[in-house]
Simulated scan of single mutants.
Amino acid sequence: MSDKIFDKFQNSVSQLLIKHKSILDVLTKQQESITRVNRAIIKAVTSCGCIEINASKQEISDEISIEHIQDILDNHLSGQLCDHCQDIIKQEMGNHLFYLAALCNLLDLNLSDIIEKEQKKIHTLGIYNMLR
Rank of each mutant, 00 (worst) to 15 (best):
L111I: 15
I89N: 04
D25V: 05
L24E: 13
I41L: 10
E67D: 15
L107P: 02
C48L: 09
K121L: 14
L111P: 12
G94Y: 05
M93V: 15
L131I: 14
N38S: 13
D108A: 07
S22H: 14
I42W: 05
A101D: 06
H123N: 01
L106F: 04
L109W: 02
S12K: 10
I41Q: 04
I23Q: 08
I69C: 04
E32V: 02
I34E: 15
T35N: 11
S14E: 11
Q58I: 14
L24Q: 12
C85D: 11
V13A: 01
A55R: 14
L111K: 08
Q91A: 14
H123T: 05
L106P: 03
R39C: 14
G94E: 12
S61W: 05
A101G: 03
C104E: 06
I60T: 10
D83M: 00
Q15C: 03
S2Y: 01
Q80C: 13
L77R: 00
Q70H: 01
D87P: 00
I18P: 02
D62L: 12
N105H: 11
D71R: 04
M93K: 05
Y99E: 10
K57S: 12
A40L: 03
S2L: 07
D87Y: 03
N129A: 14
Y99C: 04
D62R: 08
T35S: 14
K121A: 08
